[in-house]
């Protein structure tokens, strides 16, 4: 079974935010209005963490795009009372929107604050809700959602591969954020495939994962010359 993983090269990433926007568009993530967004309810599956190190004038900024880390040992799925979030056998941590009761326990349990909640009925471009991605369902009020590693794209490429009667190739399954990144900072692939780009990058001396000590085994690696 493949284990899908993402490698984000922070030495390439400029923090432009294209991945955030691409993710929202790809996954029909609602647009949160002014009042709500300012109240801390903005919806980003791919979030951006900005930190500054050092004191003026030797300040360095660190920007870190943050999807769901798709932990191999996810604390979020363990607590779900109804199995509305679970880790499938390809390592993708999925949400079942129509089963979720909205208790937000998984949000509280995720050490990386990656999950978001539909506090109100989701909204999109007013009066013109027509550029939905037809491959991704829209969510209803009261359920939790998060980065899915664009699982629908996996579905898609699998269908193509099946039609053509061949196995999936490295680089065929590309999430929207990785595809759009102007710095080519996001690599994606199968950690079980030793020839894959992500496998090699994940072994790089620059590679690390966020809070590795927690033992939740995130499948998102960050590459950086700076020690994180």
């Amino acid at each position: 079974m493949p284990r899908w993983a993402m490698v984000i090269d922070l030495d390439k990433c400029t923090g432009c935010g294209a991945c955030m926007a691409a993710c929202k568009m790809e996954n029909n993530v609602a647009i949160v209005d002014s009042k709500e967004a300012q109240a801390g309810r903005a919806l980003f599956w791919m979030d951006m963490i900005t930190t500054y190190e050092g004191e003026y004038p030797t300040v360095a900024a660190k920007r870190m795009p943050k999807p769901c880390f798709q932990c191999d040992n996810p604390p979020c799925t363990k607590v779900c009372p109804v199995r509305a979030t679970y880790r499938n056998n390809e390592g993708l941590v999925a949400q079942i929107y129509h089963r979720c009761i909205g208790c937000r326990y998984c949000m509280a349990a995720c050490p990386f604050t990656t999950k978001v909640f539909n506090w109100y009925e989701p909204q999109w471009l007013e009066g013109a809700n027509k550029c939905f991605n037809p491959d991704v369902s829209v969510r209803a009020v009261g359920v939790v959602e998060k980065c899915s590693f664009c699982a629908h794209r996996l579905q898609h490429v699998k269908e193509v591969a099946d039609l053509e009667k061949r196995p999936l190739q490295d680089g065929e399954y590309v999430p929207a954020c990785s595809e759009i990144c102007p710095a080519d900072a996001i690599s994606f692939g199968d950690l079980e495939n030793k020839d894959s780009a992500v496998y090699k990058l994940s072994r790089s001396y620059r590679a690390s994962r966020v809070m590795e000590d927690l033992g939740v085994e995130p499948k998102v690696y960050y590459l950086s010359k700076r020690v994180s």
Binding site: G40, R41, W119, E121, V141, G142
Partner: peptide, 11 residues
């Protein structure tokens, strides 16, 4: 209206 009417948010 949904839980939006409360003061809760992320995080």
């Amino acid at each position: 209206n949904g839980l939006g009417v409360t003061g809760m948010n992320q995080p």
